[in-house]
Design a protein around this nucleic acid. Structure first.
Length: 116
DNA sequence: ACGGTGACGAGAT
DNA sequence: TATCTCGCCACCG
């Protein structure tokens, strides 16, 4: 299938009203260190595959969009439409809105998980 | 075919 | 805590 298609399938599974991180998507796509490339996949495939690209943010909880097609302000607006709180400096509470890909309701911080 | 690139992330300083 | 550095690796031209 390829990493690209894995990413597309996973992003489609992010629930309405939730967000996740590039790193988490990469992990779920079986490429734990492929976070950077997730960004590229979203950039070139979002419209074509009808992806909820706005539900992917960085692991610090910030919107990190910088493309013309997907400006920060648009991502913020789309998230707010789903009932997600976004601060003026484009931050989202991952503890509250994060989706880790598990059936668990709670967001799992993978990086901290591996440490212990 | 091949190398620069990136909407990242973790560890180091 | 804030910044900096560097590894990452499938893709695209």
């Amino acid at each position: 299938m390829g990493f690209k298609n894995n990413v597309i399938q996973i992003v489609k599974k992010i629930p309405y009203g939730k967000v996740t991180t590039y790193g988490t998507v990469a992990l779920l796509a079986s490429l734990p260190r492929g976070a950077r490339f997730v960004a590229g996949v979203l950039h070139f495939n979002s419209e074509k595959n009808n992806l909820p690209w706005h539900r992917v943010i960085n692991r610090n909880g910030f919107i990190s969009i910088r493309s013309l097609e997907h400006p920060k302000a648009l991502q913020k607006a789309l998230l707010q439409e789903e009932g997600i709180q976004v601060s003026d400096d484009f931050m989202i509470n991952l503890k509250k809105y994060g989706w880790s890909g598990n059936s668990d309701e709670k967001y799992l911080d993978h990086s901290k998980l591996e440490k212990q």
